[in-house]
Design a protein around this nucleic acid. Sequence first.
DNA 1: TTTATATATGAACAAGTGTTCATGTGATGA
DNA 2: TCATCACATGAACACTTGTTCATATATAAA
Lengths: 122, 122
Amino acid sequence: MPHHENDRCEDTCFHPKLVESVAKGLLGRKSAEELAQLFKALGDPTRVRILNALYLSELCVCDLTDLLGMNQSAVSHQLRVLRDARIVKSKKMGKNVLYGLDDEHISGIISLGSEHVRELRQ
Amino acid sequence: MPHHENDRCEDTCFHPKLVESVAKGLLGRKSAEELAQLFKALGDPTRVRILNALYLSELCVCDLTDLLGMNQSAVSHQLRVLRDARIVKSKKMGKNVLYGLDDEHISGIISLGSEHVRELRQ
DNA sequence: TTTATATATGAACAAGTGTTCATGTGATGA
DNA sequence: TCATCACATGAACACTTGTTCATATATAAA
């Protein structure tokens, strides 16, 4: 990765030693990309509401459709995004498909996020 | 909000009591929107890398420019997104502006997210 | 088999996002 | 004052995203 010499501060800023030590602790590009993908998948109100509902109970697509007041296609498309990101898991039950959260990290992340938002309000 | 009667399951699915109880526990639309906004702000690789760096140390724009290998304008634009979401805070130091994480929730969220991603890899 | 139901998916389109380029602003130093 | 530096910002543009509509698939019932 080429340093952007032309943009480099010359005087009081650009702390080479600090930058060097921080550089060693940085995530790799690929990890950063994966992490961003995870948050991107959480970054939509419809998907947040779906996850909020699935945190409370496993539900089928139709239940979610009713809870969200959205049409089935929109819900299925968003569930696909969440499945691809391995945030939710699904199992077939007869004609229906039951969805649930894939692991506990997700609910932890959402809880922390909720706290953050709640505090920002005050 | 009108229920989507036409999309409602009729037989084995659509559990009205379950749906009703879940509905009571759901975040309001506005909270879901705010939470999604938070995650959306985290959902970009450049911003993840910025936050990762700021977690390790407060840094000025120029340091970040160098660390990320990106031009200053791109970094400033992304910092604006993070400031607007109140994820980072900034203070002026002479000609420079020093950035840092706004609160501890953010590093917690990123840590949990990193764990999740790390486990998915295995 | 035929029909209906629950869900998935492709195409299309409006709306949103991230980067670059050019330029503006405010602080510093000559 | 004038030039320079660090940073911010607006415009433009390619790219992505979320919803809708139409349709496909799979299970179950008749």
